[in-house]
Design a protein around this nucleic acid. Structure first.
Ligand code: SF4
Ligand code: SF4
Lengths: 135, 135
DNA sequence: CACTAAAAAGACTTTTTCTATCTTTTTAGG
DNA sequence: CCTAAAAAGATAGAAAAAGTCTTTTTAGTG
C-alpha cells in the first residue's frame, strides 16, 4: 500500500538533480536522464508535466533544455510528488465522501483524513534545497 | 498516490462490522458481505487471509461462520490494513535500500522513512473498538 | 451414514494502471 | 535551410487489481 510509482521516483530524482545545479544552468534532458539513471523517454514525459506546472522551465531547439522554475528552497517535495502522482489520497472517500453512503456515520473516514494530513505535512516540510544539499 | 485498494477498504468494513457484534457471535460471511456491501466472493478471500493471521476465527460446516479473533480493543487498524495490503511502504528503498545504489547519499530516502513512521503511527493509534463504536 | 451448510483452496477472467517506447510536430539557433 | 532539442500523441507490453467460478474440506443433523 501507499507505494510511490516509478514515475514519482524518477520525477524526484530528476528535479533534485536540477536543484543541485546553478539556478540558471540549462540542462539537457539526455544528460539528466543519464545522471539519475532513468529512461530518457520516460523522463521526457515527466518533465513535460513539470513544465506545464511551472516547476521547471523548458527551452526548445538548439541549446535548449531544462532549468528549475523557481528557487529550490521554494519548491517542496509535496509539490513535486503531487505534480506527477496527483493528490495524496489514502482513500477515495477523502476526496469524494458521497461515493460511499457510509461516510456520514463512518469512524474510519476521519482516520484517512489524518493520514492524508500527516503525509502532506511531512512532504511539505522538505524543500528541494535540502534534498540537493551535498551530504 | 498512496491509495488504499478496494480490497483494503472491504477488509476494514468487514472486520469493523464483526467488531460491532458481541465478541463470541458467529456471523455468516454472506451476512457480513450484504451488511457492508461487498461482493461475497471477494470478501471470502479477504477473510481467509484474516483467518490465517488470527485476526478472525473461522468455523466451517453447518452453523459455521466468522468471529473476531481477539478483543476489538486489541486489534489496531494498522494490523488490519497490513494483513491484506502488506506492509506500509512509501518507496521500495525503505525496505530494500540496496535496490537503489543511491541510498547511501540520498537525502530523500530518510523522508520516506518518516512518512512510513507517520502513517503507521496514525493507524496504530486506532483500534477496532473505536471504529465500531456507535456514533 | 447420508445430507446439507459453510468455509478453504485454487484456477481463471477481466479491467485498470503502470511502464516504456516510438513517431511526428513544433520551436529555436547557427 | 539545417540541425538540435523539447512537445505531443499514439501505441504496446507487463503487472496489479478486482472479481468470479469450481472443487474440496470440514462439520453439524436427521
Ligand atoms: S466506509 Fe468509511 S472509510 Fe470506507 S469509504 Fe466509506 S466513509 Fe470512507
Ligand atoms: S534515490 Fe533515494 S529515495 Fe529514490 S529509491 Fe534511491 S534511495 Fe530511495
Amino acid at each position: 500500500m501507499m507505494e510511490l510509482t516509478r514515475k514519482g521516483e524518477y520525477a524526484i530524482r530528476g528535479i533534485v538533480y536540477l536543484a543541485g545545479k546553478p539556478i540558471d544552468k540549462v540542462c539537457l534532458l539526455s544528460d539528466i536522464a543519464a545522471a539519475v539513471d532513468v529512461p530518457p523517454t520516460f523522463l521526457a514525459k515527466i518533465f513535460q508535466q513539470f513544465s506545464k506546472m511551472g516547476l521547471v522551465k523548458s527551452f526548445r531547439g538548439t541549446g535548449g533544455g531544462f532549468m528549475l522554475g523557481r528557487a529550490p528552497e521554494n519548491i517542496t517535495l509535496l509539490e513535486v510528488v503531487e505534480a506527477v502522482e496527483g493528490p495524496i489520497i489514502p482513500n477515495r472517500c477523502v476526496v469524494t465522501p458521497s461515493d460511499c453512503g457510509r461516510s456520514d456515520f463512518c469512524n474510519v473516514h476521519p482516520v484517512w483524513k489524518r493520514v492524508q494530513g500527516g503525509v502532506r505535512g511531512v512532504l511539505e516540510g522538505v524543500t528541494l534545497k535540502e534534498l540537493s544539499a551535498g551530504k
